[in-house]
Design a protein around this nucleic acid. Sequence first.
DNA 1: TCAAAAGTGTTTGGGTTACACCCATGG
DNA 2: CCATGGGTGTAACCCAAACACTTTTGA
Lengths: 213, 213
Amino acid sequence: MPFVRTELVVLCVAQGELQVLLSRRAEEPHAGKLGLPGGVLRIDEDATLEGAAQRVARERLGRELPNLHQLCAVGGAERDPRAPWALSVVYRSLVQPELAVTPGKRVQALEWRAVGGLADHGPLAFDHGELIDKAVEATRAQIEALDYPPGWVQEPFTLPELQAFSAAVLGRELDKVTFRRRVEATGQVEALQGEMRSGGAHRPAQLYRFAGC
Amino acid sequence: MPFVRTELVVLCVAQGELQVLLSRRAEEPHAGKLGLPGGVLRIDEDATLEGAAQRVARERLGRELPNLHQLCAVGGAERDPRAPWALSVVYRSLVQPELAVTPGKRVQALEWRAVGGLADHGPLAFDHGELIDKAVEATRAQIEALDYPPGWVQEPFTLPELQAFSAAVLGRELDKVTFRRRVEATGQVEALQGEMRSGGAHRPAQLYRFAGC
DNA sequence: TCAAAAGTGTTTGGGTTACACCCATGG
DNA sequence: CCATGGGTGTAACCCAAACACTTTTGA
């Protein structure tokens, strides 16, 4: 039977850009390179695949992950020199930028890196570059469809804030009018009557929260 | 390490309906029930996950499958009583209705079943019902986007034929004008000058083939 | 008073839908 | 000639994009 692992693609929006959580690998193979946090499946501890991913998150990042979606499985005989056959099940998660992650065992350091221009910092370990691309694509499709993962933006929020987050994920500007109309048409947000956010030298913004909370 | 298998969701259009290839299980667990064809990953024979799926297809169905797409991976401690932990990587494929499948080892019989009303024939083995639903959903999204798998329809074909196949996959009628315009706009089909299909008591239809063949 | 950002109304254009109509063939 | 299905033109409609404009605040 093959050597089975779980890899995590953890994304967030910070500094107006989509970022991915990477770790500097301490051990071979690919020691010194940046790679996705991951870990071996433990059939004595994990009840399900997603449970395994959450355990790996606890061990490596110090906490569980919200909005965990399975991305794909990759595997082959030549994938990992530590085993004759290696299989990885990859999960993605979109988290709040304020997520506190604490490096865990066998992780030298955790770093947020903007997904644009990742190639500038040298090659990533294994095929992790392609996995990140796939995760970004799936996440963008989700946000494009206004399918907001619960708990991603802290409530209450304003529509311009939601628009800015969405634009950061998508990597392109969004039209204000179109965005407002599309979001309001979905019916998933409701205005908080009388509550505003007065942030600067401009008109305060209406606060919203997701309906059904 | 877990027990790793590959399962195949093979779909085709026949009798104007989307059908799935199922096998009557000869052995426990779930003996006698209908289930997806599948097989165990062989790390000594298979170089990749997709290679494993193709080997399973050769052994169980007597041929390789075109348009093979990975659907998901499912796994857990309670998944299969034959092992303490079982993991399945699921693939889907859309094939021509004329595909000849010959039952292989450990498969009593292969049957095409319409995906509508599958529940009427008793429960399926494992979670194969849910896997079929996911495969149908993914296939419908692909056809909805006019992303036709190469070799799915035999060329040459007429646009009404392509429309009928698409409608069968999607499970709903399609507007003739809209369908023609959308297909022609993609530029992936080209008319065969002067070639027509005269099938009945009506005007013959223009024959097409996919561009870039 | 002004700059800046929130929020609204209007127009434009692309693409889908619906409908009417013509075309070509077999019976 | 007529029924049948292939193929085309036109108008209505929906939605997103672009633009102009008003509103409200802090400086």
